[in-house]
Amino acid sequence: MNIFRLAGDLSHLAAIIVLLLKIWKTRSCAGISGKSQILFALVFTTRYLDLFTNFISPYNTVMKMIYLGCAYATVYLIYMKFKATYDGNHDTFRAEFLVVPVGGLAFLVNHEFSPLEILWTFSIYLESVAILPQLFMISKTGEAETITTHYLFALGMYRALYLINWIWRYYFENFFDLIAIVAGCVQTILYCDFFYLYITKVLQGKKLSLPA
């Protein structure tokens, strides 16, 4: 474990908690893409299948359970409890256009052709594009609540910090995983225009609104 990976995990945890609290406290999921949240729940489910068979550390197990629990709790709040506030008219990104190609790619490009490894690879690829429905929804509505922008910033930073963690592990632990690195680069690049808007607008106290 290095500081970059720990910072990344904490940023990821913060994002997940901020989103859950935002929906719970405001009792509304306006502006939140339910499709992205379903994709994230799928990412954690397919990545943490070895949760009970492959013990790494108490930290690893606890964090995985928190991620899984919060992901499903968020999906539940969006599609069940606060369904009335779900903005389905703007959450129209075709998620199947992500899941199917990612599923095919996981079959073709992986480290080992075994069920667990293919599912892990699927989760890595899917995570890199899972935020697209959310970004698409913001581009359609033309704006985002400030709390939602903080959620997205923390979520985007988590994988950016992981990229630094992989550089660190390459030099100090001779550790290298091309699949995770390439997918992590794609994932972080997708946030770049949001990062620009976040830093130039939200941090200046303005509301995030896209030129319609």
């Binding site: 995990d9 690893n60 992981y162 001779n174 550790f175 290298f176």
Partner: peptide
């Protein structure tokens, strides 16, 4: 270069 040996990352 060691490929990913075990999934020790989240």
């Amino acid at each position: 270069i060691l490929k990913r040996l075990l999934k020790d990352e989240l």
